[in-house]
Design a protein around this nucleic acid. Structure first.
Lengths: 340, 340
DNA sequence: ATTGAGAAGGTAAACGATTAAGTAAATACG
DNA sequence: CGTATTTACTTAATCGTTTACCTTCTCAAT
């Protein structure tokens, strides 16, 4: 690999001059700078990141925390799309993305924080992990610029999908379609679930809907089996709902299966709505009505906030950025007569 | 950040001694080593990766080339699962994963190779990209340890899903189910497509199936719209097939839509099979019969080969590792009477 | 002529590690 | 006992950059 030293030898100047020329400093003669840059180009020079990082304490590398447990992580459409957008955003600004090592190994089991400091990440995007683990707490408290997705910490920037508005929009949508008996199978406990659930109740109240207790069920995210079971439960009620909301699109497919097995049709006999807006949901019939989250925007916001935090730590607001989703109108929710 | 210098000061030894103690060299007194390691632990020491990389030319970091174009990349189940498995594999061996920057920017637009050298990657996994671009050629010729997925270069290690065997198994499977009029909508041109297509013809020959020309159609991977159109074409033939094979599961859903729109049922009226084995295909009814690729194994093999190449360059075979898939038996392929 | 400023470039230390080579003391050996 | 070997360290160079601080030169102003 050709280094500044090689260039300096060819150009007959000192290494310092080469450094200055390549970094476009201005205590260098115009002509000298031009010559050095040209030679560098010809020799195929590019900087040694390790050396640069060592000297400047800037790695132009951000860590992404992506814990793959419970079938989440990379293999979840939602996170994959967010990551993809995040990647594009930071790459455009000259940063690279490295995964924070989650299979802790090495001597003594390095913690997330140690790994991050060791690698010298300029910042960390905490996208998908167990936010309640002490390791994460240690990480966000460390002072390394960090942005979380869909989780709020004190004094840490966060980007959140607007689950309150989202659930409100979705429920209002099915209400307008004439549904008065709406059930909600919500996901396992988390901040996201809490937001959606309370928004569900509040919106129901505002719309004058009464939600019987047995209409609110729980099924873990992305679990078609339990969603299937809970759907069966709802279908077997004396007064079954006319529409069921699911924790996510994946779970909604579990619902489909139960419904079809009972010999019922979507949306003819019962309506269904998901949440997330995964791609496949738009490609199978009936297309799934769902609250589509704006993953591109989410990823972009995480990236921009993180870079801003890195480059302008003093002037960057510690805030929570809320990204709106919108109802994707498939044909899984029927228009029905209205009052029961 | 606490450095070796800090430790050496506390322990009253030289930095060199600290380095040796921490690296478990043996020209160090037992007791001294113990003391140094203990102090290091207490002071919360961890190595500065940049310094280590600079000095040793080993980054313990591998680059992953993941080009997101044409809706592929991260957001494709197949690649996402492979990446996930690759990530776990290399992390367990003490390596981190960084994406090779694909949104080339920086001064003068750095090439993949320049980026890799600049970052000092110990190796590169080329997972998902345009294998015919000159940049990629430059990369694999550079001498940096590299492993490709599903593409063969001269003298480069490759991990390939066995598309020949896969297609043979799949076609044989539908044949055994009694199908004699089998259509194949294949994907856009690529090495993978070639393998499957020739295997399709060869297997058909072996089974004594005649495949009319109009039974072989093309639709890009993961394109539900064109798959829909081509399915319509097939259904409208005077003698439509009894079973249609698709380029991938996603495309198969496009086929479902066309079939349903014609008022036909899967598998009652016509059978359908996909390729890949994406998760969702197992969760909707009818569950899709497909050739499930072993993404976990693919990722693991890429990772292990790459690390082996890095750590034992002399003794590691340059070879092509073939990973077998297997037919996932859903209920989208009907058992039918047999001879037409 | 003297002074001073600004431009252009050089010197050398530093970042945090690794490692070849050197040294002093302890131990072994004949 | 003298020499050779081993053990346990230390010294110092080095990886490729950056950067604070010099030095030299030119030229304008006084």
């Amino acid at each position: 690999m050709v280094s500044m030293k090689d260039i300096s030898a060819v150009c007959g100047v000192s290494v310092a001059t080469v450094s200055k020329a390549l970094n476009d400093q201005n205590d260098i003669g115009k002509e000298t700078k031009r010559r050095i840059r040209q030679v560098a180009e010809e020799m195929g020079y590019f900087p040694n990141t390790a050396a640069k990082t060592l000297k400047t304490n800037r790695s132009y590398n951000v860590g992404v925390l992506f814990n793959h447990e419970d079938y989440s992580g990379l293999t979840h459409d939602y996170y994959a799309f967010v990551l993809d957008s995040l990647k594009n955003t930071v790459e455009q600004k000259g940063y690279d993305i490295t995964f924070v090592n989650t299979s802790k190994r090495r001597l003594g089991g390095t913690s997330y924080l140690e790994h991050c400091k060791s690698r010298g990440f300029d910042g960390i995007a905490i996208v998908c992990t167990d936010f309640y683990s002490p390791e994460i707490l240690q990480l966000v408290r460390s002072g390394i610029p960090a942005v979380t997705l869909d989780h709020l910490f004190n004094n840490v920037c966060a980007v959140m999908s607007n689950n309150v508005q989202g659930m409100q929009d979705l429920l209002t949508y099915v209400y307008r379609k004439g549904h008065r008996r709406v059930a909600y199978i919500h996901g396992a406990d988390s901040a996201v679930t809490q937001s959606r659930l309370s928004s569900f109740y509040r919106t129901a109240g505002q719309l004058g809907l009464t939600i019987p207790d047995e209409y609110v069920r729980m099924s873990p995210y992305r679990d078609t089996k339990i969603a299937y079971r809970e759907t069966m439960y709802l279908l077997d009620l004396d007064e079954p709902p006319t529409c069921i909301l699911y924790p996510d699109d994946f779970a909604a497919f579990g619902g489909f299966n139960a419904i079809h097995e009972r010999g019922l049709r979507v949306p003819g006999d019962i309506s269904v709505a998901g949440y997330d807006g995964i791609r496949i949901a738009r490609h199978i019939e009936p297309t799934l009505t769902t609250l589509r989250q704006d993953t591109t925007e989410l990823g972009r916001q995480v990236g921009e906030k993180l870079i801003s935090l890195i480059e302008h730590p003093k002037t960057t607001l510690v805030e929570t950025i809320v990204v709106e989703g919108h109802v994707f109108e498939g044909n899984s929710v029927a228009e029905i007569g209205g009052e029961e």
